[in-house]
C-alpha cells in the first residue's frame, strides 16, 4: 500500500509577517530586498531559509500516515512538495519524521535564470502596489494540477494532506487534486481508520459547529487532515541521521503548469480597524479604563 503526503512549505508566522517592526513598509525582522536579477520595480521580502517551516496541518497529515504504517508495516510513505529549492527543507523534515521517500516538484526556475515574481507572470502589476508579501507563487489549482500531472501513471492508495495551509488559508488543494484524479475525497478529517490495507477507510469529518459526520470511502481516496487529529512526533535521532543520506528526488515541473484559472493580482496589509477604540496610556491606566468600560455597560457590579 502506498501513501502520498502532500506538504507545503510556509513562511512561519513568527518570521515577521505577524509583527512587523515598521508597518510602513519593512517586513519585520527581515529586510525587503529587490528580487535579485528580477525586475527592479517589484520588490519582494526575502526571508532566510530557516524562516520557512512545514505547514502544521500537513504535519498532522504526515503523522497520520506514519500511524497507518505502524499498523500496516507494508505501507510505503512518499512525501511530496511543490516549490522552489528551499522547500527541500520540509521534505528533509518529512524524511526525519519517517517518510520513506521524498519528491520535490520544482516549479521555480533554476537560480541561473532571472526569477520572475509570481505577479508578473501574466504581465500585470499588483492592484495594490503598496507592499507585497511572499505570495505563494501558485494558486491551489495550479498546485493541484502540477501534482495531478506528476501522478499520472503512478498509483497511490491514499493521499493525505493538511486541511489548509496556514499562510494561504484556502483549503482547496486537496479537493482539487482529488477531483482532477477522479477519486473520492473527505475534508477536515478528524478521525481516520483503515479497515484493511486495501480499504475501505472509515473517516469522521468535522462540520460547522463541531458536529461530525462519518463516511466509509473506498480506496484510492484523498483525505484532508484537520488539526487536533494527532500530535505530530519529533523526529527520532536515528531517523534524523538516516535522513541525511536519503535522496530527495527533484522533478522539473514548470512545464506541468496549466494556464491559470484565477490569479492573485495584489496583496496588502489590512488597514487598521476603524471601529476599534484602542486604549492608551500606562498599563494600570488602561486596566482602569477597561474596568470602567465594563462597569458602564453593566457587566461589573458598581
Amino acid at each position: 500500500m502506498n501513501i502520498l503526503v502532500c506538504i507545503k512549505q510556509i513562511l512561519a508566522p513568527e518570521s515577521g509577517w505577524e509583527s512587523p517592526a515598521d508597518p510602513g513598509g519593512s517586513f519585520g525582522k527581515n529586510e525587503i530586498t529587490a528580487v535579485k536579477g528580477g525586475p527592479q520595480t517589484f520588490t519582494e521580502p526575502s526571508f532566510a531559509d530557516d524562516c520557512y517551516r512545514m505547514n502544521p496541518y500537513d504535519e498532522n497529515a504526515l503523522e497520520e500516515a506514519l500511524r497507518i504504517r505502524e499498523q500496516f508495516p507494508e505501507v510505503k510513505i512518499d512525501a511530496l512538495s511543490v516549490g522552489p529549492d528551499r522547500c527541500r527543507r520540509v521534505l528533509r523534515r518529512a524524511l526525519e519524521m519517517g517518510a520513506d521517500r521524498a519528491v520535490q516538484l520544482q516549479v521555480a526556475p533554476p537560480p541561473s535564470e532571472a526569477p520572475e515574481p509570481p505577479h508578473s507572470r501574466e504581465g500585470s502589476k499588483p492592484a495594490h502596489p503598496t507592499e507585497s508579501i511572499p505570495d505563494p507563487a501558485l494558486t491551489p489549482f495550479e498546485t493541484a494540477a502540477v501534482i495531478a500531472s506528476y501522478l499520472r501513471g503512478k498509483s497511490y492508495d491514499l493521499i493525505l494532506t493538511g486541511v489548509m495551509a496556514e499562510d494561504g488559508m484556502a483549503g482547496q488543494t486537496g479537493q482539487l487534486l482529488a477531483a482532477l484524479l477522479g477519486i473520492p475525497c473527505a475534508t477536515a478529517v478528524i478521525t481516520e481508520r483503515l479497515l484493511s490495507s486495501h480499504g475501505p477507510v472509515y473517516v469522521e469529518r468535522e462540520e460547522d459547529g463541531g458536529e461530525r459526520s462519518a463516511y466509509e470511502i473506498t480506496l484510492p481516496a484523498l483525505l484532508t487532515i484537520q488539526s487536533g487529529i494527532n500530535r505530530p512526533r519529533y523526529p527520532a535521532l536515528s531517523h534524523v541521521l538516516r535522513a541525511r543520506t536519503q535522496e530527495i528526488t527533484k522533478v522539473a515541473a514548470a512545464e506541468l503548469l496549466p494556464p491559470p484559472r484565477e490569479r492573485v493580482v495584489g496583496s496588502r496589509r489590512r488597514e487598521s480597524s476603524t471601529q476599534c477604540a484602542f486604549l492608551t496610556g500606562p498599563l494600570p491606566e488602561q486596566a482602569r479604563q477597561f474596568l470602567d468600560f465594563c462597569r458602564q455597560r453593566g457587566f461589573l457590579n458598581t
Binding site: A127, M169, E262, R263, R270
Partner: peptide, 12 residues
C-alpha cells in the same frame, strides 16, 4: 484574507 487575516489578497 491570508496570513491569519492580517493580509488581504485580490483574486481575478
Amino acid at each position: 484574507s491570508i496570513l491569519k487575516g492580517q493580509w488581504q489578497q485580490e483574486v481575478r
